[in-house]
């Protein structure tokens, strides 16, 4: 119980600091932020922006006001020019965040579906040619940036062969087939590198696990190798897998943002790229805050899951 309270407090502190940082981003802009955001605007617009950013307040009040607006979803609109109503920032977050999350979820699932059997099998075959080969390939794959993989796929699968659409998002509800067709390349582009990371770590962890006395013990019961691998060896290693997942969330988010821009997926990453290029710093603050919050929350979730899954930690807490 105490542990939980402490962790919740920790979480809140981190969230406050992180959002504080994003809320004062515009203060870092060189010169007058308003000039950077809206170089050719009227006095009235300038005053509005100044107001929206609370530039006239001190930093703490500014954060307080920003937080109030952020929490109530009342984030205002992007600045689109004199007399033009910009897009609602909250509206854009509401639309784009679920897409980014879904994209990341697909990547995570596919990654595990491929990496776990691969890692288990190569650990089982440790020291053989096949193991060396797959290790080598994984090492090569680790060195290919997501955007290169994405670009290669675009060239071969879309531009030259027209097998898959090059860009855009189709919702699952409206057309499942198109949905997956549009997401196939983005998801694969991230997954390839992730599989290499997971499979390599799982392999080395399982190789160590397979040295354990309890594996020999399990084997001496006369149960099948398959069972020894999946029941006895993978379980303890799955905790490592979870640790990797936690450490890797940043990579995953980064990958998602990049492919969103490349494939015009209109998720949060695309929104961020768009905001940067159109110098929508008011909106950028909020987008970044959302990403940071997601990152922190996912990490907390992973950590919690870890505690739930490991009977040793669980036991320690009870007893």
């Amino acid at each position: 119980m105490q542990v939980i309270v402490r962790r919740v407090i920790q979480l809140i502190v981190v969230l406050v600091v992180v959002t504080f940082f994003t809320s004062i981003l515009t203060a870092l802009l060189p010169g007058d932020p308003v000039t950077t955001i809206a170089p050719f605007s009227s006095e009235q617009d300038r005053a509005n922006i100044r107001n929206q950013l609370n530039l006239n307040e001190n930093i703490v009040v500014r954060y307080g006001k920003w937080l109030g607006h952020f929490m109530t979803g009342d984030m205002g609109r992007e600045y689109a020019g004199t007399g033009v109503r910009g897009q609602s920032i909250w509206g854009r977050i509401k639309d784009s965040l679920p897409r980014s999350l879904l994209l990341m979820l697909y990547v995570q699932i596919l990654t595990l579906l491929i990496a776990v059997p691969l890692g288990v099998y190569t650990a089982y075959k440790a020291g053989t040619r096949l193991d060396d080969l797959s290790n080598g390939i994984a090492f090569l794959l680790l060195s290919i940036p997501v955007y290169v993989t994405a670009t290669l796929m675009l060239l071969f699968l879309s531009v030259q062969r027209h097998l898959l659409p090059t860009e855009g998002w189709v919702s699952l509800g409206s057309n499942p087939v198109e949905h997956f067709k549009h997401l196939a390349m983005p998801v694969l582009a991230i997954t390839i590198g992730q599989v290499a990371v997971y499979a390599r770590l799982l392999r080395s962890d399982m190789v160590a696990t397979l040295q354990e006395d309890y594996i020999l013990m399990a084997k001496s019961k006369g149960i099948s190798d398959r069972r020894v691998l999946w029941r006895h060896a993978l379980r303890p290693s799955s905790l490592t897998l979870l640790t990797v997942a936690g450490l890797n969330v940043g990579q995953l988010i980064g990958g998602a943002l990049i492919v969103e821009v490349i494939f015009h997926l209109n998720g949060l990453g695309f929104a961020i790229g768009d905001a940067i290029n159109r110098r929508q710093y008011i909106a950028l603050q909020d987008y970044i805050a959302v990403v940071a919050i997601v990152y922190v929350l996912v990490n907390v979730a992973v950590d919690t899951l870890y505690r739930v899954l490991d009977p040793r930690i669980r036991g320690a807490r009870i007893g």
Binding site: V17, V249, V291, Y295
Partner: peptide, 13 residues
């Protein structure tokens, strides 16, 4: 605190 941002996002920002 700095690690609470994904690297790419922090650099980008």
């Amino acid at each position: 605190i700095f690690l609470a941002f994904p690297q790419l996002v922090l650099a980008l920002t």
